[in-house]
Write a protein that binds this DNA or RNA. Structure first.
Length: 118
RNA sequence: UGAGCAGACCAUGCGGCAGCGGAAACGCUAAGUUUACGAGGAAAGUCCGGGCAUCACAGAGCAGGGUAGCUGCUAACAGCAGCCGAGGGCGACCUUAGGGCAAGUGCAACAGAGAUAUACCGCCGCUUCUGCGGUAAGGGUGGAAAGGCGAGGUAAGAGCUCACCGGAGUGCAGGAGACUGCACUGCCAUGUAAACCCUAUCCGAUGCAACGUCUAUUGGUGCUUUGUAUCUCAACGUUGGCUCGACGGAUACAAAGUAAUGACGGCUUCAGCUUACGGGCGACUGUAAGCGUAGAUAAAUUGCCGCACACGACAGAACCCGGCUUAUCGGUCUGGUCACUUG
RNA sequence: CUGGGUGUGGCGCAGCUGGUAGCGCGCUACCUUGGGGUGGUAGAGGCCGUGGGUUCAAGUCCCGUCACUCAGA
């Protein structure tokens, strides 16, 4: 990852859930907030609801892959957290990458513009 | 050929492109390049046992918890192996918490006359004719009613006597032992200890968020040391739950030191794996040679494509080992058994 | 990583030392009322989370297992 730091602290996640904007689909929920830093902060959540450890690991892998592929197209200086949902397990990685690359990136750019303008 | 039993093993394979993790080498450093390596039989549940670490330890007892046929294996175990007893199966074989109710206490609903001691209906004898005595064969209730069954015996009966079976005690023999066999005595004692309990035996506590090293901050707080003041000779405190015992005077104030935070270590070379030879029925073990085989910290071991087929189950290391338990698409091999058929 | 607790009618709970599974709310029918509520009577609804074992007999005792939940580091 070129200009991304991995988010670790629980309080960062909580503030993002409260104050950020979100984009939902049946595969995942994407939370976004500008952070006024020269890099992005990225986090993944795969809860117990999704399944066992194997299922959670797969969900995390797919999300990481999609983020890495589309990282160049995203704006810099945002916090982004992707929450996996159970729909992500039944599909191939191409499908999720395609969804994220086209629809997800577009929606993220829109949301960031709105937040910055406000 | 069919059915069934036991044990061992495998866990889609190959190729291409892209990507991840720590390591080593190259590189002045960095960016990076190259190389080999990179989840499991259960990694799971966390049910036992041990290592390791810290704390506490003069010692003893109690409490608490575990285990329960015998002999062995092991670092240890509630595990495993072999054997004994009991039960099941035609058999290969399987199952088994399997010490002690003649140390004590408790419980045994309903039914039944009576539940750990009895006499309702019966049977027999006597008789003042409605009672007394003797019985426990038969009836019925129950999970269980003073061993079972047959014969003798008797007024009727009864281990009262005898044979066989069962159980108990004693002796002898065999065995390492559980136990087995034989002989004699002899029939009095229901079941339940996964009821309290007794007996034998084992266990110090806490867990890698243990713990160690370095380091930022210094207001409060805890701990340690030193000094000052006050109180008192019997209390109080410590000794991981209690008691004995042992040790220590206690409290307040001041000063100094120390802890927290973060980073790194702990972190993978060992009760290690493979092969050969030897010991042992076996679990296991000895010797020799070879091998190095994950170590992350939001947490890597993957994504896509192609080919093959049986169409791919359960499932992801987090300090490390030995077991147990549970989940699992299927497949391979080995050795027994039974039935049928053919030679 | 360690140690507890709970699973019982539709819902919330009893059931302690083993011996016929109950209570409240809810549900159904009937009575009461001109009608409804309240009240009364009767009734339905449970393989006690699940698989074994001990016992004559298990919701209860023992072992395994599944789910939920709490506490501590």
């Amino acid at each position: 990852m070129l200009y991304t730091v991995i988010m670790r602290e629980n309080k960062d996640f909580l503030t993002l859930y409260k104050k950020g904007r979100y984009i939902t689909s049946k595969y995942s929920v994407i939370y976004i907030k500008p952070n006024n830093r020269p890099y992005n902060r990225f986090g993944i959540t795969a809860g117990k609801k999704i399944g066992n450890a194997v299922a959670r690991n797969r969900a995390k892998r797919l999300i990481r892959l999609a983020y890495r592929n589309s990282e160049v197209k995203l704006p810099i200086g945002i916090d982004i957290v992707i929450v996996a949902r159970s729909g992500i397990l039944g599909i191939k990685s191409d499908e999720y990458c395609g969804y994220f690359d086209k629809y997800g990136v577009m929606e993220i750019n829109k949301a960031v513009k709105k937040l910055v303008n406000h």
